[in-house]
Amino acid sequence: MEQFVQQLINGLSLGSIYALIALGYTMVYGIVKLINFAHGDIFMVGAYVGFVSITYFNMGFFPALLIAMLFCAVLGVVIEKVAYKPLRNASRITALITAIGVSLLLEYVVMFFAKAGVRTYPENVLPNLEMTILGVRITFTQVCIFAVTIALVILLQFIVHKTRVGKAMRAVSMDKDAAQLMGINVNNTISVTFAIGSALAGAAGILVGVYYNSIDPLMGIIPGLKAFVAAVFGGIGIIPGAMIGGFSIGAVETMVSGYGSSLYKDAVAFAILILVLIVKPSGLLGKNTREKV
């Protein structure tokens, strides 16, 4: 039982990271219907910005977090304006290939400047505390990651459901043309979405850097892919879905490693994804839309 709870906690802290990345995926998908494959790499850039600000500018955790989020938000908007906006009316597959191009570009530009090797965050960015409750070990960093994730998700829900920008986002994601007719500035709304989504990825990047202490230019590929899986799993385009998806994937992975074979942990995650899609093609929280002729 103790071990089970411990594994659950392990899964939740891993899942928080997936959830943060998945949120960005889902928001962008919801509004422009684009699988933004560069999202995982924005997460990587966030980790590097955090690394630079902590190691070279001796910043604390929270200033570095803010800077990484800000930098990624700007990067996200620039990418959207330069690479995706001209393709808004193109076929979705064209935009997808462009996103893959941007993803490779980010990876290898960072690799060119920072080299391929790992970089390590300094120790003790966050106090190295831990507590043991009934034999279950929880570290301060784990609590922080979980808290930051939950706080950001609540903030996000607030923005989307209670503010004018959020209303505009929901309108644009429902019907772009109608929203425009109603006087919503579609371009700005999309930019804001990219900014928020990328900022979340940046936050995830610095959290990974602090928690695991290791970053490299290709670190975004696998978490990016898994976050995408998480987003689809929960129902792509739905914010709570992405969070549930992220936590589920994290939990499945740790449970398979903990009670089955770690050799097949990723395979099981993908197999569950396929099963969920077959049973409920629009994801866990997705609404089945009726086909119209």
Binding site: V229, L277, P281
Partner: peptide, 26 residues
């Protein structure tokens, strides 16, 4: 089973299938 899915959902299902094959081969 998977071709019931549409668009991006099919894409992710086929992607998952290829990853599973890769992991099994590994």
């Amino acid at each position: 089973p998977t071709l019931r899915l549409k668009g991006d959902y099919l894409a992710i299902a086929t992607l998952g299938m290829a990853e599973i094959i890769k992991i099994i081969a590994q």
